[in-house]
Simulated scan of single mutants.
Amino acid sequence: MTPGVKPLVAGNWKMNGTGAALGEVRAIVEGLSASGSAVADAMLCVPATLIGRAADAAGGAVLEIGGQDCHAKESGAHTGDVSAEMLRDAGASAVIVGHSERRTDHGETDATVRDKAAAAWRAGVTAIICVGETREQRENGEAERVTSAQLDGSIPDDMTAGNTVIAYEPVWAIGTGLVPSNDDIAAIHALIRDRMEARFGGEGRKVRILYGGSVKSGNAAEIFAIDNVDGGLIGGASLKAADFLAICDAVPD
């Protein structure tokens, strides 16, 4: 963890969840409320079809609701896309941009991600900007180069710790059960912190840096104890209230 920075545990439901899953949202709210802990912020980034209903279920208290992607434009002839303003109107306070699945499946470039982050800020929502290397890049010793290039290209110049979260997700660890060593996580998070400080000064020192990639209740406490790891971006383990709450409980006091 980073001293003076409040951690964030954010769930990414990806393309999962219908109205029947709102019971899990309510259970998470109940669990967070019962714990009475304000050690970390908690958020669920749900499919666009659920944002409004999830925000209603969350009630705006202990659980924030976010989206998973947005278009760079505020409106226009972009069939099937959703703007950041629409997400905000539906009840989202944040949006994930640049997730590796968007970069890979939809060919999103750093410039695309940069524009989407700026769109999120324009709409008044936090941009959760994702970076991370593939397995091949890791094995070729390119993890630091790739992550640095993505940071430089994906973050607009007027970033603040209040409008941005950085999520480091090694692509090869997402949904595979594989997790980098603690030393590897520490090295990349230190790199991210150093580059953020060098570019953004005090805002870079305060911005939250999350780790994502096969985080579960069994390994969360160990990962969250690593320097410069300010919480997690949680995939499959965020779909069930019990699993997500256990990860939230793993954040150190």
Rank of each mutant, 00 (worst) to 15 (best):
S93E: 01
I51F: 08
A119F: 02
T18S: 12
E139C: 08
Q150A: 05
E101P: 14
M43Y: 00
C70Q: 03
A72C: 08
A94D: 04
G153H: 02
T164G: 07
N228S: 13
A48M: 01
H78W: 12
P3H: 09
T79F: 03
A72M: 06
M43A: 13
A250S: 15
R145A: 14
N182T: 13
I28C: 11
S75M: 10
I209D: 01
R193Y: 02
R193G: 09
E144A: 14
A20T: 13
M86V: 14
G59E: 00
D89C: 09
A167D: 04
G162H: 09
G202D: 15
E139A: 11
V113D: 04
G19D: 10
V179Y: 02
E139T: 15
G236P: 11
N12K: 07
G91N: 02
S238T: 11
I128R: 03
G91Y: 01
I226C: 08
I65K: 03
A225W: 05
S75G: 12
S35D: 10
D89R: 10
E64D: 15
S100H: 06
M43W: 00
R103C: 08
D152Y: 02
G231A: 11
N228K: 09
G36R: 06
L44S: 03
V62R: 10
G231L: 06
I223M: 08
H71V: 14
R199L: 06
V165N: 05
Q150G: 04
T160A: 10
E136Y: 03
E197C: 15
K240A: 10
V97G: 07
L8G: 07
P7H: 04
T164C: 11
D157I: 11
E85D: 14
A187T: 13
T112I: 14
A120C: 15
V97C: 07
H71T: 10
R135I: 08
S100G: 08
R199K: 15
V62A: 10
D69P: 07
A40T: 14
L44K: 01
D194R: 15
V171G: 09
P47H: 03
D184E: 14
E108M: 11
G231W: 01
M1V: 15
A221H: 05
R103Y: 10
G162A: 13
E222V: 09
L32I: 11
H189K: 07
R193A: 12
S83W: 01
E136N: 13
V171P: 12
G23L: 04
G60Y: 04
K6P: 11
D184P: 11
I128K: 04
S148E: 03
R88D: 01
G162Y: 00
G177K: 07
G98M: 08
S93D: 02
G204V: 12
S37F: 00
H106T: 14
E203Q: 15
E108H: 10
G36I: 10
R195F: 00
G60I: 07
N12A: 04
A225I: 11
G204L: 00
N140D: 11
A72I: 08
